[in-house]
């Protein structure tokens, strides 16, 4: 199976006003395979969004790449020129954002906005061709009456419909990698179910999909592979089955246990003590150490190596050593 994207020991951080660089993402490695969906899970502040923005090379001011590679079909995107990147974005590499309300231009019709993405990368297309391709895309994402909808403005669309428009925009150039950053967080559950259905269908026909979310349910619905992030470290990764049925890292275990499910019993929920540390107070070792019930001396000082915990299952924890 072809690898679409690979993060290889990628590190990045932030430079503050004094020029000190604080590391955020610490040697992240994972892969997105063709036709598969990778879920990047974690709580706020764990570096999920910085991972996707790194991929798009859209990092905010003050961000510093500290090492590693991000390979897109074998080429390191960190070495690409601005122009090369521009050709990639919206074409081979596209992204769906969380807020469909703010990501659309209110004064342009849906058809104009989706069409623009197409003509930008394919200036040779004729007007009629663009229109029919946009209609196809609208139909593909399940928008009823595309012939009328194409000439309407964003305010005439509901939240769920706008998210479908965003998806149509993202997939119109058949990207090799589609990044969805919290694609359903702003939506109601019944609408979320519709959007997940669309994404599941598109996944089969597209390159790779990377879903960034805090919702473990969403991951279980559409992903085959999972990376669990904590405070900028990718602490556990593997197949959905490996991670969900046999979580090994204490953080992953805690995260799974603390979510009430629709069938859970009425006993007190498991809680992880403390809160996610900020970039200024990361410890030199495992960043979860001070909240971990199994924390030993080594955990505070040394970052544990990524070790094989099973077939298609890797974990970054000293404890798996002792098992």
């Amino acid at each position: 199976m072809a690898t679409i994207v690979e993060f290889k020991n990628y590190s990045m951080g932030f430079r503050d006003d004094d020029g000190t660089v604080y590391n955020l993402l610490d040697r992240i490695s994972f892969r997105v395979e063709e036709g598969k969906a990778l879920g990047v899970v974690g709580e706020s502040g764990c570096g999920k969004s910085m991972t996707s923005l790194s991929m798009m090379r859209l990092l905010p001011d003050g961000a510093v790449v500290q090492g590693g590679e991000i390979l897109m079909e074998g080429k390191n995107i960190l070495d690409m020129s601005g122009q090369e990147m521009q050709a990639l974005r919206g074409n081979k590499l596209s992204m769906i954002f969380q807020e469909p309300m703010t990501a659309l231009n209110p004064v342009l019709t849906i058809g104009q906005q989706i069409g623009e993405i197409l003509t930008l990368h394919h200036p040779e297309l004729k007007k009629q061709e663009v229109r029919s391709r946009v209609l196809e895309a609208l139909e593909e994402v399940g928008i009823a009456h595309p012939e009328t909808r194409i000439d309407q403005y964003p305010h005439e669309f509901s939240g769920g419909m706008r998210q479908r428009v965003m998806i149509a925009m993202a997939v119109i150039n058949h990207p090799a990698l589609l990044i969805a950053d919290e694609p359903t967080t702003a939506l109601d559950v019944t609408i979320q179910a519709q959007i997940l259905d669309v994404m599941r269908r598109l996944k089969k026909a597209s390159g790779g999909l990377m879903v960034i979310t805090h919702n473990l349910g969403v991951v279980a619905e559409i992903c085959e592979e999972v990376v669990v992030m904590y405070a900028g470290q990718a602490i556990e990764r593997g197949t959905l089955k490996a991670i969900f049925d046999n979580p090994i890292h204490p953080y992953t275990q805690g995260l799974m246990a603390s979510v009430p499910t629709i069938r859970s019993e009425k006993k007190p929920l498991y809680t992880i003590p403390g809160t996610v540390p900020t970039v200024y107070d990361f410890v030199p070792g495992c960043r979860f150490a001070d909240r971990c019930q199994h924390c030993g001396e080594r955990c505070m000082k040394e970052v544990p190596p990524m070790r094989q915990a099973g077939e298609d299952h890797l974990v970054q924890c000293w404890r798996s050593d002792d098992r």
Binding site: S158, G160, V189, T190, A193, Q194, G217, A220
Partner: peptide
């Protein structure tokens, strides 16, 4: 029933038939 079935469950056990509501409120 539709609401219950729309909730994505964090488990790998296959889910029973999903009821997908059409349209918006």
């Amino acid at each position: 029933q539709a609401l219950v079935s729309a909730v994505p469950e964090p488990s790998t056990a296959g889910r029973s038939q999903r009821i997908l509501l059409e349209g918006d409120i």
